[in-house]
């Protein structure tokens, strides 16, 4: 499907649960409420006409002004050759969301990465641990207000003059 046709189709499929961005530059995306996050992803992945079976990229962005973290999933379909970007926003303090790992196994590691770098935890995730940083690391580096510790296990984190 072309991207316009896909947008129309998804609008029909999901009804009033969709919110489209329509930006001036760059990609268009769909925002959904975090309660519907898992169900909508499930629908889009299994629906015959969408068949978005490939999770291309899954990440988060921190927006401290809005006190929210935005999760962005880029999905794609090899058979139909179309892609869709789905987003949701969750609060910064609580920072929990449902896992997508049952829908796309690729999400297992992407969610571990988001947990590690942004501090978002996922309900029912099979293996939620830090992935890139060491287990005893303090803080979540990709949050905008992240401050580094002065030493890590005795190694200074700035170069002495």
């Amino acid at each position: 499907m072309t991207s316009e046709a896909l947008i129309d189709y998804v609008k029909g499929l999901l009804g009033d649960k969709t919110k489209w961005a329509d930006p001036e530059a760059g990609d268009n995306f769909l925002t959904v409420a975090s309660e519907d996050w898992k169900n909508i992803c499930q629908t889009l992945a299994t629906d015959k006409k969408c068949s978005l079976t490939y999770l291309r990229n899954f990440t988060g962005t921190d927006y401290p002004e809005d006190d929210e973290i935005e999760l962005t999933a880029h999905t794609f379909s090899y058979s139909e050759k179309h892609g869709l970007i789905i987003k949701t926003r969750i609060s910064r303090e609580a920072a929990v969301c449902d896992t997508l790992s049952k829908i796309w196994p690729a999400a297992i590691w992407y969610e571990r990465e988001i947990f590690d770098l942004l501090g978002v935890s996922f309900n029912n995730h099979p293996d939620l641990r830090r992935i890139l940083m060491p287990e005893d690391w303090v803080g979540h580096p990709l949050r905008k207000d992240y401050k580094q510790q002065e030493t890590y296990r005795g190694i200074p984190t700035t170069r002495p003059a």
Partner: peptide, 19 residues
């Protein structure tokens, strides 16, 4: 030597001679 390009990064040791 010093951390090089990644001296500002949170994850990189700023030089092997620190340890």
């Amino acid at each position: 030597n010093t951390g090089g390009l990644f001296q500002e990064s949170y994850a990189v040791v700023n030089g092997g001679d620190l340890f």
